[in-house]
Amino acid sequence: MLRYRDGDVAAFEVLYRRHKDPLFRYLLRLCRHRAAAEDVFQEVWGKIIKSRDNYRPTAKFTTFLYHVAHNCFIDHIRRNKRHGDTADIEPDSQPHGADCPETLVEKSLARRRLDTALRSLPEEQRDVFLLHEEAGLSLDDIAMITDCKRETAKSRLRYAVGKLRAALDDTPETA
């Protein structure tokens, strides 16, 4: 980011290719609408580009990036009241690898259950889980990004993982 601030566009391309897919998935799962996720994605990178002159390496770039993304998502929610009405992300039903049909069906069912469980998570828990899985952030970083205490972030993550585990086991669990 510092190199890009000094005019090195190639450095930005490296940074972008490293973070673009996890960030896109994070926003896709948060927004639950592909078009909205794409809009927020562009908005996030636009803010990153604009803030290059004021960027100070006080934290990891990943933390900075997801902090911006989280705030953009919050702004998107405030702007768009339709958020949460419906979801248009279809789970990928294409077979992977050379598994046998029974295994494919079982995996597909597990994926569908996990996707349903992920969508049914409360927004705060889904946010924390996605930050943990996609960005690989620590609880301290997640707490800083979501503007809550570390214990709160930890509790949210624990609940989210428990619900998803229960969905995978196909055993209902209450939070």
């Binding site: 896709l28 799962r29 789970p91 990928d92 994926r111 996990l114 899985e133 998803l164 585990r165 995978l168």
Partner: peptide, 12 residues
């Protein structure tokens, strides 16, 4: 297990 399942799911 949850992480692995999520990795399989989230391949966009």
């Amino acid at each position: 297990r949850v992480s692995a399942a999520y990795r399989e799911l989230a391949d966009e």
